[in-house]
Design a protein around this nucleic acid. Structure first.
Length: 554
DNA sequence: TGGGTGGGCGCG
DNA sequence: AAAGCGCGCCCACCCA
Protein backbone atom coordinates (compact mmCIF):
# COMPACT_ATOMS: atom_id res chain seq x y z
CA UNK A 1 0.00 0.00 0.00
CA UNK A 2 1.17 3.51 -0.79
CA UNK A 3 0.01 6.79 0.72
CA UNK A 4 0.67 9.93 -1.29
CA UNK A 5 1.29 13.03 0.82
CA UNK A 6 0.66 16.51 -0.59
CA UNK A 7 0.32 19.86 1.07
CA UNK A 8 -2.65 21.95 0.10
CA UNK A 9 -3.68 25.37 1.29
CA UNK A 10 -6.17 24.00 3.81
CA UNK A 11 -4.14 21.04 5.10
CA UNK A 12 -2.33 17.93 3.94
CA UNK A 13 -4.02 15.65 1.46
CA UNK A 14 -3.37 11.93 1.99
CA UNK A 15 -4.26 9.62 -0.87
CA UNK A 16 -4.26 5.89 -0.24
CA UNK A 17 -3.26 3.77 -3.24
CA UNK A 18 -4.15 0.10 -2.99
CA UNK A 19 -3.94 -2.34 -5.89
CA UNK A 20 -7.32 -2.83 -7.51
CA UNK A 21 -9.03 -0.20 -5.38
CA UNK A 22 -9.89 3.37 -6.29
CA UNK A 23 -7.60 5.98 -4.65
CA UNK A 24 -9.05 7.23 -1.37
CA UNK A 25 -8.21 10.77 -0.33
CA UNK A 26 -8.56 12.51 2.99
CA UNK A 27 -7.58 15.93 4.28
CA UNK A 28 -5.61 16.26 7.51
CA UNK A 29 -4.97 19.57 9.28
CA UNK A 30 -1.25 20.32 8.98
CA UNK A 31 -0.65 20.21 12.72
CA UNK A 32 -2.25 16.78 12.98
CA UNK A 33 -0.11 15.24 10.25
CA UNK A 34 2.54 13.63 12.49
CA UNK A 35 -0.04 11.89 14.66
CA UNK A 36 -1.96 10.69 11.64
CA UNK A 37 1.21 9.38 9.97
CA UNK A 38 2.19 7.54 13.16
CA UNK A 39 -1.21 5.93 13.31
CA UNK A 40 -1.19 4.81 9.68
CA UNK A 41 2.42 3.64 9.92
CA UNK A 42 1.61 1.41 12.86
CA UNK A 43 -1.54 0.09 11.24
CA UNK A 44 -0.29 -0.74 7.75
CA UNK A 45 3.41 0.09 7.15
CA UNK A 46 2.66 1.89 3.90
CA UNK A 47 5.23 3.28 1.50
CA UNK A 48 4.94 7.04 1.95
CA UNK A 49 5.08 8.92 -1.33
CA UNK A 50 6.03 12.57 -1.22
CA UNK A 51 7.79 15.11 -3.33
CA UNK A 52 10.62 15.97 -0.98
CA UNK A 53 11.79 13.80 1.91
CA UNK A 54 14.17 16.45 3.19
CA UNK A 55 11.27 18.80 3.90
CA UNK A 56 8.40 16.51 4.83
CA UNK A 57 10.24 13.90 6.84
CA UNK A 58 12.23 16.49 8.80
CA UNK A 59 8.94 17.80 10.08
CA UNK A 60 7.78 14.33 11.09
CA UNK A 61 11.10 13.64 12.83
CA UNK A 62 10.79 16.82 14.86
CA UNK A 63 7.45 15.51 16.04
CA UNK A 64 9.07 12.20 17.00
CA UNK A 65 7.56 10.19 14.14
CA UNK A 66 9.59 7.77 11.99
CA UNK A 67 8.54 5.73 9.02
CA UNK A 68 9.89 2.58 7.47
CA UNK A 69 9.64 3.23 3.76
CA UNK A 70 9.13 6.11 1.35
CA UNK A 71 9.27 7.07 -2.29
CA UNK A 72 10.92 10.41 -3.00
CA UNK A 73 9.39 11.70 -6.22
CA UNK A 74 11.92 14.45 -6.75
CA UNK A 75 14.99 12.24 -6.43
CA UNK A 76 13.43 9.43 -8.45
CA UNK A 77 12.34 11.79 -11.17
CA UNK A 78 15.91 13.01 -11.56
CA UNK A 79 17.09 9.43 -12.05
CA UNK A 80 14.25 8.52 -14.41
CA UNK A 81 14.51 11.51 -16.69
CA UNK A 82 18.12 10.65 -17.48
CA UNK A 83 17.63 6.91 -17.57
CA UNK A 84 14.63 6.84 -19.89
CA UNK A 85 14.28 8.05 -23.42
CA UNK A 86 10.99 9.75 -22.65
CA UNK A 87 11.14 11.49 -19.29
CA UNK A 88 7.82 12.05 -17.56
CA UNK A 89 6.55 15.43 -18.71
CA UNK A 90 5.36 18.11 -16.37
CA UNK A 91 6.32 21.76 -16.23
CA UNK A 92 5.29 21.96 -12.60
CA UNK A 93 7.94 19.43 -11.67
CA UNK A 94 10.69 21.22 -13.51
CA UNK A 95 10.31 24.01 -10.99
CA UNK A 96 10.23 21.49 -8.21
CA UNK A 97 13.59 20.07 -9.14
CA UNK A 98 15.41 23.30 -8.66
CA UNK A 99 13.85 25.28 -5.86
CA UNK A 100 16.86 27.59 -5.86
CA UNK A 101 15.81 28.74 -9.30
CA UNK A 102 12.66 30.18 -7.80
CA UNK A 103 13.88 32.76 -5.32
CA UNK A 104 10.44 34.38 -5.28
CA UNK A 105 8.73 31.21 -4.10
CA UNK A 106 7.03 31.89 -0.78
CA UNK A 107 8.59 30.02 2.12
CA UNK A 108 6.31 27.46 3.68
CA UNK A 109 6.58 25.54 6.90
CA UNK A 110 6.00 22.33 5.12
CA UNK A 111 8.02 22.08 1.96
CA UNK A 112 10.44 23.97 -0.23
CA UNK A 113 7.81 23.83 -2.92
CA UNK A 114 4.21 22.75 -3.07
CA UNK A 115 2.15 21.01 -5.69
CA UNK A 116 -1.53 20.15 -5.80
CA UNK A 117 -2.37 16.65 -4.61
CA UNK A 118 -3.62 15.59 -8.04
CA UNK A 119 -0.26 16.54 -9.51
CA UNK A 120 1.73 14.63 -6.90
CA UNK A 121 -0.48 11.60 -7.45
CA UNK A 122 -0.15 11.93 -11.23
CA UNK A 123 3.63 12.11 -10.97
CA UNK A 124 3.68 8.94 -8.89
CA UNK A 125 1.62 7.13 -11.50
CA UNK A 126 3.77 8.41 -14.36
CA UNK A 127 6.91 7.25 -12.63
CA UNK A 128 5.43 3.85 -11.88
CA UNK A 129 4.44 3.39 -15.51
CA UNK A 130 7.82 4.59 -16.72
CA UNK A 131 9.59 1.98 -14.60
CA UNK A 132 7.19 -0.76 -15.66
CA UNK A 133 7.79 0.07 -19.32
CA UNK A 134 11.56 0.04 -18.94
CA UNK A 135 13.64 -2.87 -20.20
CA UNK A 136 15.51 -2.87 -16.88
CA UNK A 137 12.50 -2.48 -14.62
CA UNK A 138 13.85 -4.67 -11.84
CA UNK A 139 17.13 -2.83 -11.46
CA UNK A 140 15.53 0.56 -11.87
CA UNK A 141 12.96 -0.22 -9.18
CA UNK A 142 15.78 -1.31 -6.87
CA UNK A 143 17.62 1.92 -7.57
CA UNK A 144 14.59 4.09 -6.83
CA UNK A 145 13.89 2.21 -3.61
CA UNK A 146 17.52 2.55 -2.54
CA UNK A 147 17.61 6.25 -3.39
CA UNK A 148 14.43 6.83 -1.38
CA UNK A 149 15.74 4.83 1.57
CA UNK A 150 18.85 6.98 1.41
CA UNK A 151 16.70 10.08 1.63
CA UNK A 152 15.07 8.77 4.82
CA UNK A 153 18.47 7.93 6.29
CA UNK A 154 19.94 11.32 5.41
CA UNK A 155 17.03 13.09 7.09
CA UNK A 156 17.32 10.89 10.18
CA UNK A 157 21.09 11.35 10.44
CA UNK A 158 20.72 15.09 10.10
CA UNK A 159 18.02 15.08 12.77
CA UNK A 160 19.88 12.80 15.20
CA UNK A 161 23.32 14.30 14.54
CA UNK A 162 26.81 12.92 15.05
CA UNK A 163 27.76 12.62 18.75
CA UNK A 164 30.22 15.42 19.35
CA UNK A 165 32.16 16.62 22.36
CA UNK A 166 32.77 20.34 22.29
CA UNK A 167 35.08 19.90 25.26
CA UNK A 168 37.24 17.38 23.39
CA UNK A 169 37.14 19.58 20.29
CA UNK A 170 38.17 22.64 22.28
CA UNK A 171 41.03 20.71 23.95
CA UNK A 172 42.26 19.57 20.60
CA UNK A 173 42.08 23.06 19.11
CA UNK A 174 43.76 24.67 22.11
CA UNK A 175 46.60 22.14 22.03
CA UNK A 176 47.20 22.79 18.35
CA UNK A 177 46.50 26.52 18.10
CA UNK A 178 46.71 27.97 21.60
CA UNK A 179 43.79 29.69 23.34
CA UNK A 180 40.86 30.82 21.24
CA UNK A 181 41.50 34.31 19.84
CA UNK A 182 38.99 37.11 19.38
CA UNK A 183 36.91 36.70 16.22
CA UNK A 184 38.91 37.60 13.13
CA UNK A 185 42.29 37.29 14.87
CA UNK A 186 44.89 34.55 14.37
CA UNK A 187 45.35 32.12 17.24
CA UNK A 188 48.74 32.57 18.97
CA UNK A 189 50.43 29.48 17.52
CA UNK A 190 49.34 30.46 14.02
CA UNK A 191 50.57 34.03 14.47
CA UNK A 192 53.94 32.79 15.74
CA UNK A 193 54.33 30.54 12.70
CA UNK A 194 53.36 33.39 10.38
CA UNK A 195 56.01 35.55 12.01
CA UNK A 196 58.62 32.82 11.60
CA UNK A 197 57.75 32.55 7.91
CA UNK A 198 58.03 36.34 7.51
CA UNK A 199 61.41 36.43 9.25
CA UNK A 200 62.83 33.48 7.34
CA UNK A 201 61.76 34.94 4.02
CA UNK A 202 62.72 38.50 5.00
CA UNK A 203 59.19 39.60 4.09
CA UNK A 204 58.03 41.52 7.15
CA UNK A 205 54.54 42.40 5.87
CA UNK A 206 53.70 39.02 4.34
CA UNK A 207 50.24 37.55 4.81
CA UNK A 208 50.86 33.82 4.31
CA UNK A 209 47.17 33.35 3.43
CA UNK A 210 47.74 35.26 0.19
CA UNK A 211 48.90 32.89 -2.51
CA UNK A 212 50.39 35.45 -4.90
CA UNK A 213 52.15 37.35 -2.10
CA UNK A 214 53.54 34.12 -0.67
CA UNK A 215 54.80 33.02 -4.07
CA UNK A 216 56.56 36.38 -4.56
CA UNK A 217 58.17 36.09 -1.13
CA UNK A 218 59.34 32.53 -1.87
CA UNK A 219 60.87 33.67 -5.16
CA UNK A 220 62.48 36.61 -3.35
CA UNK A 221 64.20 34.12 -1.05
CA UNK A 222 65.53 32.20 -4.06
CA UNK A 223 63.04 29.32 -3.88
CA UNK A 224 62.05 28.38 -7.43
CA UNK A 225 58.58 26.91 -7.06
CA UNK A 226 55.73 27.22 -9.56
CA UNK A 227 52.99 27.15 -6.95
CA UNK A 228 52.60 27.31 -3.18
CA UNK A 229 51.10 23.83 -3.03
CA UNK A 230 52.03 21.50 -0.21
CA UNK A 231 53.38 18.70 -2.39
CA UNK A 232 55.68 21.06 -4.26
CA UNK A 233 56.99 22.70 -1.10
CA UNK A 234 57.62 19.30 0.47
CA UNK A 235 60.41 18.72 -2.04
CA UNK A 236 62.14 22.01 -1.30
CA UNK A 237 65.13 22.13 1.05
CA UNK A 238 64.84 25.45 2.87
CA UNK A 239 64.28 26.48 6.50
CA UNK A 240 60.96 28.15 5.65
CA UNK A 241 59.34 24.92 4.48
CA UNK A 242 58.70 23.36 7.89
CA UNK A 243 57.05 26.40 9.52
CA UNK A 244 55.13 27.21 6.34
CA UNK A 245 53.66 23.73 5.97
CA UNK A 246 52.79 23.72 9.66
CA UNK A 247 51.13 27.11 9.20
CA UNK A 248 49.07 25.81 6.29
CA UNK A 249 47.99 22.72 8.22
CA UNK A 250 46.89 24.65 11.29
CA UNK A 251 45.36 27.53 9.35
CA UNK A 252 43.10 25.08 7.64
CA UNK A 253 42.14 23.43 10.92
CA UNK A 254 41.27 26.84 12.34
CA UNK A 255 39.26 28.08 9.38
CA UNK A 256 37.51 24.86 8.35
CA UNK A 257 36.87 23.06 11.66
CA UNK A 258 37.74 25.57 14.36
CA UNK A 259 35.73 27.29 17.07
CA UNK A 260 33.56 29.28 14.67
CA UNK A 261 32.63 26.13 12.76
CA UNK A 262 31.61 24.39 16.00
CA UNK A 263 29.41 27.31 16.98
CA UNK A 264 27.59 27.11 13.70
CA UNK A 265 27.18 23.35 13.35
CA UNK A 266 27.30 21.75 16.80
CA UNK A 267 24.28 21.96 19.07
CA UNK A 268 23.26 20.43 22.38
CA UNK A 269 21.99 16.88 22.01
CA UNK A 270 18.65 15.57 23.21
CA UNK A 271 19.82 13.49 26.14
CA UNK A 272 21.49 15.80 28.58
CA UNK A 273 24.32 18.16 29.39
CA UNK A 274 27.70 17.66 27.72
CA UNK A 275 26.26 15.55 24.93
CA UNK A 276 26.38 17.53 21.75
CA UNK A 277 25.64 16.76 18.14
CA UNK A 278 27.09 17.84 14.81
CA UNK A 279 24.18 18.25 12.39
CA UNK A 280 25.43 18.12 8.80
CA UNK A 281 23.07 18.77 5.94
CA UNK A 282 23.37 15.74 3.67
CA UNK A 283 22.22 15.96 0.06
CA UNK A 284 21.32 12.48 -1.25
CA UNK A 285 21.94 12.21 -4.97
CA UNK A 286 23.86 15.49 -4.77
CA UNK A 287 26.70 14.15 -6.94
CA UNK A 288 26.10 13.16 -10.59
CA UNK A 289 27.32 9.65 -9.89
CA UNK A 290 24.74 9.16 -7.14
CA UNK A 291 27.02 9.81 -4.24
CA UNK A 292 25.75 12.06 -1.51
CA UNK A 293 26.96 15.61 -1.13
CA UNK A 294 26.67 17.93 1.85
CA UNK A 295 25.57 21.51 2.02
CA UNK A 296 27.21 23.35 4.88
CA UNK A 297 29.26 21.89 7.66
CA UNK A 298 31.52 19.93 5.34
CA UNK A 299 30.61 16.58 6.87
CA UNK A 300 32.15 14.64 4.01
CA UNK A 301 35.48 16.33 4.59
CA UNK A 302 35.68 15.87 8.36
CA UNK A 303 39.48 15.81 8.74
CA UNK A 304 41.19 12.99 10.59
CA UNK A 305 42.67 15.78 12.75
CA UNK A 306 39.35 16.44 14.52
CA UNK A 307 37.86 12.97 14.68
CA UNK A 308 38.79 12.83 18.36
CA UNK A 309 35.84 15.16 18.98
CA UNK A 310 33.41 12.50 17.77
CA UNK A 311 32.68 10.80 21.09
CA UNK A 312 29.96 8.33 22.07
CA UNK A 313 27.60 9.25 24.89
CA UNK A 314 28.34 7.64 28.27
CA UNK A 315 27.13 4.05 28.19
CA UNK A 316 27.14 4.12 24.38
CA UNK A 317 29.67 3.13 21.76
CA UNK A 318 30.49 3.89 18.16
CA UNK A 319 30.59 1.08 15.62
CA UNK A 320 32.76 2.35 12.77
CA UNK A 321 32.84 0.27 9.58
CA UNK A 322 34.41 0.84 6.20
CA UNK A 323 34.65 -1.29 3.09
CA UNK A 324 38.08 -2.24 1.87
CA UNK A 325 38.64 -1.24 -1.79
CA UNK A 326 34.97 -0.91 -2.63
CA UNK A 327 35.34 0.40 -6.19
CA UNK A 328 37.60 -2.30 -7.65
CA UNK A 329 35.41 -4.98 -6.04
CA UNK A 330 32.34 -3.44 -7.61
CA UNK A 331 34.13 -3.35 -10.96
CA UNK A 332 35.01 -7.04 -10.69
CA UNK A 333 31.37 -7.87 -9.98
CA UNK A 334 29.82 -5.74 -12.71
CA UNK A 335 32.30 -7.10 -15.24
CA UNK A 336 31.74 -10.67 -14.04
CA UNK A 337 35.53 -10.89 -13.96
CA UNK A 338 36.23 -14.15 -12.12
CA UNK A 339 39.99 -13.64 -12.07
CA UNK A 340 39.66 -10.22 -10.48
CA UNK A 341 37.12 -11.53 -7.98
CA UNK A 342 39.65 -14.22 -7.05
CA UNK A 343 42.29 -11.59 -6.40
CA UNK A 344 39.71 -9.77 -4.25
CA UNK A 345 38.90 -12.87 -2.20
CA UNK A 346 40.83 -11.85 0.94
CA UNK A 347 40.57 -8.64 2.89
CA UNK A 348 43.15 -6.85 0.78
CA UNK A 349 42.54 -6.68 -2.96
CA UNK A 350 45.83 -4.95 -3.65
CA UNK A 351 47.80 -7.69 -1.90
CA UNK A 352 45.64 -10.14 -3.84
CA UNK A 353 47.03 -8.73 -7.08
CA UNK A 354 50.53 -9.37 -5.78
CA UNK A 355 49.68 -12.91 -4.65
CA UNK A 356 48.20 -13.69 -8.07
CA UNK A 357 51.44 -12.58 -9.66
CA UNK A 358 49.81 -9.71 -11.57
CA UNK A 359 52.09 -7.05 -10.08
CA UNK A 360 55.16 -7.10 -7.83
CA UNK A 361 54.31 -4.82 -4.93
CA UNK A 362 51.19 -3.74 -3.09
CA UNK A 363 52.00 -0.07 -3.66
CA UNK A 364 52.23 -0.67 -7.40
CA UNK A 365 48.98 -2.61 -7.36
CA UNK A 366 47.18 0.30 -5.75
CA UNK A 367 48.59 2.85 -8.18
CA UNK A 368 47.73 0.64 -11.15
CA UNK A 369 44.20 -0.08 -9.97
CA UNK A 370 43.35 3.53 -9.17
CA UNK A 371 44.87 4.52 -12.48
CA UNK A 372 42.57 2.09 -14.25
CA UNK A 373 39.52 3.47 -12.44
CA UNK A 374 40.44 7.11 -13.07
CA UNK A 375 41.91 6.76 -16.55
CA UNK A 376 45.60 7.43 -15.95
CA UNK A 377 47.62 7.21 -19.16
CA UNK A 378 51.08 8.39 -18.13
CA UNK A 379 53.46 7.75 -15.28
CA UNK A 380 53.69 4.49 -13.31
CA UNK A 381 49.93 3.90 -13.49
CA UNK A 382 49.98 4.13 -17.27
CA UNK A 383 52.97 1.79 -17.51
CA UNK A 384 51.28 -0.84 -15.35
CA UNK A 385 47.99 -0.71 -17.26
CA UNK A 386 48.92 -3.54 -19.69
CA UNK A 387 49.40 -5.89 -16.73
CA UNK A 388 45.82 -5.31 -15.63
CA UNK A 389 44.54 -5.69 -19.17
CA UNK A 390 46.27 -9.06 -19.47
CA UNK A 391 45.16 -10.32 -16.05
CA UNK A 392 41.63 -8.90 -16.04
CA UNK A 393 40.41 -8.42 -19.61
CA UNK A 394 36.74 -8.37 -18.66
CA UNK A 395 37.08 -5.70 -15.98
CA UNK A 396 39.30 -3.64 -18.23
CA UNK A 397 36.77 -3.88 -21.03
CA UNK A 398 34.06 -2.37 -18.80
CA UNK A 399 36.01 0.77 -17.95
CA UNK A 400 37.55 1.13 -21.42
CA UNK A 401 34.13 0.75 -23.01
CA UNK A 402 32.69 3.41 -20.72
CA UNK A 403 35.56 5.74 -21.62
CA UNK A 404 35.04 5.20 -25.34
CA UNK A 405 31.35 6.02 -25.09
CA UNK A 406 32.12 9.20 -23.21
CA UNK A 407 34.77 10.30 -25.69
CA UNK A 408 32.18 10.34 -28.48
CA UNK A 409 29.63 12.17 -26.37
CA UNK A 410 27.52 9.16 -25.40
CA UNK A 411 26.05 8.24 -22.04
CA UNK A 412 26.84 5.32 -19.75
CA UNK A 413 24.88 3.53 -17.03
CA UNK A 414 25.68 2.19 -13.61
CA UNK A 415 24.72 -1.37 -12.67
CA UNK A 416 21.27 -0.32 -11.49
CA UNK A 417 20.75 2.14 -14.32
CA UNK A 418 21.76 5.58 -13.13
CA UNK A 419 22.70 7.33 -16.34
CA UNK A 420 25.46 9.84 -16.93
CA UNK A 421 24.57 13.32 -18.17
CA UNK A 422 25.30 14.37 -21.73
CA UNK A 423 28.32 16.62 -22.15
CA UNK A 424 27.45 20.33 -22.21
CA UNK A 425 26.63 22.11 -25.52
CA UNK A 426 30.05 23.84 -25.56
CA UNK A 427 31.68 20.41 -25.52
CA UNK A 428 29.67 19.35 -28.57
CA UNK A 429 30.45 22.62 -30.32
CA UNK A 430 34.18 22.08 -29.85
CA UNK A 431 33.92 18.51 -31.17
CA UNK A 432 32.01 19.70 -34.26
CA UNK A 433 34.43 22.54 -34.94
CA UNK A 434 37.44 20.25 -35.36
CA UNK A 435 35.87 18.78 -38.52
CA UNK A 436 34.96 22.11 -40.10
CA UNK A 437 36.92 23.72 -42.89
CA UNK A 438 38.95 26.29 -41.00
CA UNK A 439 39.83 24.03 -38.10
CA UNK A 440 43.36 24.57 -36.80
CA UNK A 441 45.67 22.12 -35.11
CA UNK A 442 44.85 23.93 -31.90
CA UNK A 443 41.12 23.28 -32.46
CA UNK A 444 41.82 19.60 -32.96
CA UNK A 445 44.08 19.35 -29.92
CA UNK A 446 41.46 21.06 -27.80
CA UNK A 447 38.74 18.76 -29.08
CA UNK A 448 40.84 15.66 -28.38
CA UNK A 449 41.67 16.85 -24.89
CA UNK A 450 38.05 17.60 -24.01
CA UNK A 451 36.95 14.28 -25.49
CA UNK A 452 39.46 12.39 -23.35
CA UNK A 453 38.44 14.42 -20.27
CA UNK A 454 34.81 13.39 -20.76
CA UNK A 455 35.89 9.81 -21.35
CA UNK A 456 37.65 9.75 -17.99
CA UNK A 457 34.48 11.06 -16.43
CA UNK A 458 32.24 8.36 -17.93
CA UNK A 459 34.89 5.71 -17.21
CA UNK A 460 34.81 6.60 -13.54
CA UNK A 461 31.06 7.21 -13.52
CA UNK A 462 30.14 3.55 -13.96
CA UNK A 463 32.38 2.44 -11.11
CA UNK A 464 31.88 5.29 -8.67
CA UNK A 465 28.14 5.24 -9.38
CA UNK A 466 27.77 1.49 -8.89
CA UNK A 467 29.82 1.72 -5.70
CA UNK A 468 27.40 4.40 -4.51
CA UNK A 469 24.51 2.03 -5.26
CA UNK A 470 26.15 -0.73 -3.29
CA UNK A 471 26.63 1.66 -0.38
CA UNK A 472 22.98 2.78 -0.49
CA UNK A 473 21.80 -0.82 -0.38
CA UNK A 474 24.20 -1.49 2.50
CA UNK A 475 22.83 1.50 4.43
CA UNK A 476 19.20 0.66 3.75
CA UNK A 477 19.60 -2.95 4.85
CA UNK A 478 21.54 -1.87 7.93
CA UNK A 479 18.84 0.62 8.88
CA UNK A 480 16.26 -2.15 8.74
CA UNK A 481 18.39 -4.43 10.91
CA UNK A 482 19.00 -1.67 13.46
CA UNK A 483 15.25 -1.06 13.69
CA UNK A 484 14.80 -4.71 14.61
CA UNK A 485 17.70 -4.69 17.08
CA UNK A 486 16.54 -1.58 18.88
CA UNK A 487 12.84 -2.23 19.05
CA UNK A 488 10.82 0.97 18.97
CA UNK A 489 13.20 2.95 21.11
CA UNK A 490 13.96 5.71 18.60
CA UNK A 491 17.35 7.39 18.53
CA UNK A 492 17.24 8.04 22.27
CA UNK A 493 17.53 4.38 23.25
CA UNK A 494 18.29 2.36 20.12
CA UNK A 495 21.29 1.91 17.85
CA UNK A 496 21.09 4.33 14.93
CA UNK A 497 23.17 5.50 12.00
CA UNK A 498 25.00 8.76 12.68
CA UNK A 499 27.50 9.11 9.83
CA UNK A 500 28.01 8.02 6.23
CA UNK A 501 31.06 8.75 4.08
CA UNK A 502 30.81 7.00 0.70
CA UNK A 503 32.15 3.64 1.89
CA UNK A 504 32.11 4.10 5.64
CA UNK A 505 29.36 4.23 8.31
CA UNK A 506 29.16 4.99 12.01
CA UNK A 507 26.43 3.58 14.24
CA UNK A 508 25.86 5.07 17.70
CA UNK A 509 24.66 2.26 19.93
CA UNK A 510 24.03 1.38 23.55
CA UNK A 511 27.24 -0.39 24.59
CA UNK A 512 25.44 -3.65 25.32
CA UNK A 513 24.35 -3.95 21.69
CA UNK A 514 27.68 -3.02 20.08
CA UNK A 515 28.66 -6.56 19.13
CA UNK A 516 25.28 -7.26 17.61
CA UNK A 517 25.48 -4.00 15.66
CA UNK A 518 28.90 -4.97 14.32
CA UNK A 519 27.46 -8.27 13.14
CA UNK A 520 24.52 -6.48 11.54
CA UNK A 521 26.88 -4.17 9.67
CA UNK A 522 28.70 -7.20 8.24
CA UNK A 523 25.51 -9.02 7.33
CA UNK A 524 24.20 -5.93 5.56
CA UNK A 525 27.37 -5.66 3.50
CA UNK A 526 27.03 -9.27 2.39
CA UNK A 527 23.34 -8.63 1.70
CA UNK A 528 24.07 -5.62 -0.45
CA UNK A 529 26.49 -7.69 -2.53
CA UNK A 530 23.88 -10.40 -3.06
CA UNK A 531 21.12 -7.90 -3.86
CA UNK A 532 23.18 -6.25 -6.59
CA UNK A 533 25.28 -9.08 -7.96
CA UNK A 534 23.43 -12.26 -7.03
CA UNK A 535 25.73 -15.20 -6.45
CA UNK A 536 28.71 -13.76 -8.30
CA UNK A 537 31.54 -14.61 -5.91
CA UNK A 538 32.93 -11.25 -4.87
CA UNK A 539 33.59 -10.31 -1.24
CA UNK A 540 32.95 -6.96 0.40
CA UNK A 541 35.08 -7.26 3.53
CA UNK A 542 34.73 -4.61 6.22
CA UNK A 543 37.07 -3.11 8.78
CA UNK A 544 34.86 -2.78 11.86
CA UNK A 545 35.93 -0.97 15.03
CA UNK A 546 34.04 -0.73 18.34
CA UNK A 547 35.27 2.50 19.88
CA UNK A 548 34.42 5.41 22.15
CA UNK A 549 35.81 7.98 19.74
CA UNK A 550 36.08 8.07 15.95
CA UNK A 551 39.80 8.87 16.32
CA UNK A 552 40.36 5.31 17.61
CA UNK A 553 38.85 3.62 14.56
CA UNK A 554 41.47 1.95 12.43
C1' DT B 1 29.80 46.16 -0.54
C1' DG B 2 28.68 42.03 -2.77
C1' DG B 3 29.03 38.33 -6.21
C1' DG B 4 31.93 35.38 -8.87
C1' DT B 5 36.36 32.85 -9.61
C1' DG B 6 40.56 30.26 -8.80
C1' DG B 7 44.11 28.38 -5.65
C1' DG B 8 44.61 25.28 -2.18
C1' DC B 9 43.32 21.42 0.63
C1' DG B 10 40.18 18.38 3.24
C1' DC B 11 37.45 13.79 2.25
C1' DG B 12 36.30 9.21 -0.52
C1' DA C 1 58.16 11.83 -8.90
C1' DA C 2 53.45 12.68 -10.20
C1' DA C 3 48.82 12.08 -12.29
C1' DG C 4 43.86 10.37 -13.17
C1' DC C 5 37.74 10.53 -10.85
C1' DG C 6 34.01 12.84 -7.67
C1' DC C 7 32.98 16.54 -4.21
C1' DG C 8 32.66 21.32 -0.42
C1' DC C 9 34.69 25.03 1.84
C1' DC C 10 37.84 28.89 2.94
C1' DC C 11 40.50 32.67 1.54
C1' DA C 12 42.24 36.19 -1.44
C1' DC C 13 41.35 38.62 -5.36
C1' DC C 14 38.92 40.78 -9.15
C1' DC C 15 35.25 43.31 -10.90
C1' DA C 16 31.07 45.92 -10.95
Amino acid sequence: MEIVVAEESDGVRLTVLTDGVAPAASLVPTEELPARVAELEAASHPRWVWSDTAATYARLLRAGVRVERCFDLRLCRTILRRALDAPPPSDLWDGAEEPEDRPDAPPTLFATFTLPAEEVLAERLRQREAVAASAQRGRLATLLAAESAGALIAAEMRHDGLPWSRAAHDRLLTEALGPRPLPGARPPVLEALAEEVRTTLAAPALNPDSGPALLRALHGAGIAVQTTRKWELEHVDHPVVAPLLEYKRLARLHSANGWAWAEEWVRPGPTGAGRERFHPDYVPGGVVTGRWATRGGGALQLPKQVRGAVVADPGWRLVVADVAQLEPRVLAAMARDEAMARAARGGDLYQGLVDQGVIETRAQAKVAMLGALYGATTGPAGELAPRLLRAFPRATAVVEGAAMRGEVGGTVRTWLGRTSPLPPPEWKAVQDRQHEGGATDEDRRRARRLARDWGRFTRNFVVQGTAAEWALCWLADLRARLRVLGGDGGAGRSPHLVFFLHDEVIVHTPAALAEEVAEAVRESAAGAGRLLFGDFPVDFPLDVSLVDTYADAT
